[in-house]
Amino acid sequence: MTDSLSKVFAALSDPIRRDMVARLSDADATVSELAEQYDVSMQAISKHLKVLEGSGLVTRGRVAQTRPVHLEAEVFDLMTKWIERYRRQAEERYRRLDAVLAEMDTPNRKDTAS
């Protein structure tokens, strides 16, 4: 699981790849359609797509003469579960901190009331 997760996060570390994923979340696109938006070579686009494919975020098909790229949304479930686990842990730490701070504040109120 961690190895797959590492590949996904590594793939998303590049802004062009993050943008490609965002665009593919709306609809599938051909490699040429994806390439139109970026000021990089077609070879660079292919490398970006290979990284996304290697992480499992996208798949490429073949329809007649085109190579549509499809976002594999299930991969986001893996990321979401990982992020959610740590979000819950962080929220619990904040709740405990709030309780400690509230407890520390209570004696000060008694002192000022006297």
Rank of each mutant, 00 (worst) to 15 (best):
I45T: 11
E74D: 10
L78I: 05
A10V: 13
S55A: 15
R109E: 13
L5N: 06
R62P: 00
A64C: 01
S6T: 07
R62Q: 09
V51T: 10
L52C: 05
V8G: 01
R23Y: 13
V75Y: 00
L57M: 09
A11Y: 03
R93Y: 13
A35N: 04
F9S: 10
K50I: 01
M79K: 03
S41H: 13
S114H: 06
T66S: 09
T80R: 12
A90Y: 12
P68G: 03
Q65F: 02
D19C: 02
E103Y: 00
D105H: 15
E92R: 12
F76E: 02
A113T: 08
D77V: 04
V40A: 08
A27I: 06
Q43S: 14
A27E: 14
L52W: 00
K50P: 00
D19G: 05
E84C: 02
S4D: 15
V63I: 10
R96F: 09
V58T: 04
K110H: 08
H48A: 12
E33T: 10
A90G: 02
I45E: 11
S13V: 07
D3A: 14
A10D: 13
T59I: 06
A29N: 06
E103K: 07
Y94Q: 12
A29V: 00
Y38A: 05
V75L: 10
T112G: 07
F76S: 01
A73L: 09
Q43L: 07
A11Q: 01
D26F: 10
M20E: 00
V40E: 12
A11M: 12
L34D: 06
E91T: 10
K47D: 06
E84M: 06
D39W: 04
G54T: 00
D105N: 15
S13M: 07
T2E: 15
A29H: 11
P107T: 03
M1C: 12
E92V: 04
V40L: 11
L57N: 02
I16K: 09
T112W: 04
R18Q: 15
R17V: 05
Y86R: 15
M79I: 08
A64Q: 11
E92L: 09
D26K: 05
R88L: 13
R95M: 08
P15T: 11
V63C: 02
K50V: 05
H70W: 07
A64L: 04
S6G: 07
D98C: 04
E53N: 09
H70N: 06
F9D: 13
A102G: 14
T30H: 05
P68F: 01
V51L: 02
A90T: 11
D14I: 06
G54F: 07
D14P: 01
G54M: 07
P68Q: 04
F76I: 02
A99I: 03
D39H: 10
F9P: 03
G56D: 05
L49Q: 05
L71W: 00
Y94C: 09
L57H: 00
Y94I: 14
R62H: 09
S46R: 11
A35T: 01
D14K: 15
A64N: 11
R23Q: 15
K81R: 14
A102Q: 11
H48D: 08
V63D: 08
A64E: 12
T80V: 03
V8N: 02
H70D: 00
G54Y: 03
N108F: 15
E91C: 03
E33D: 14
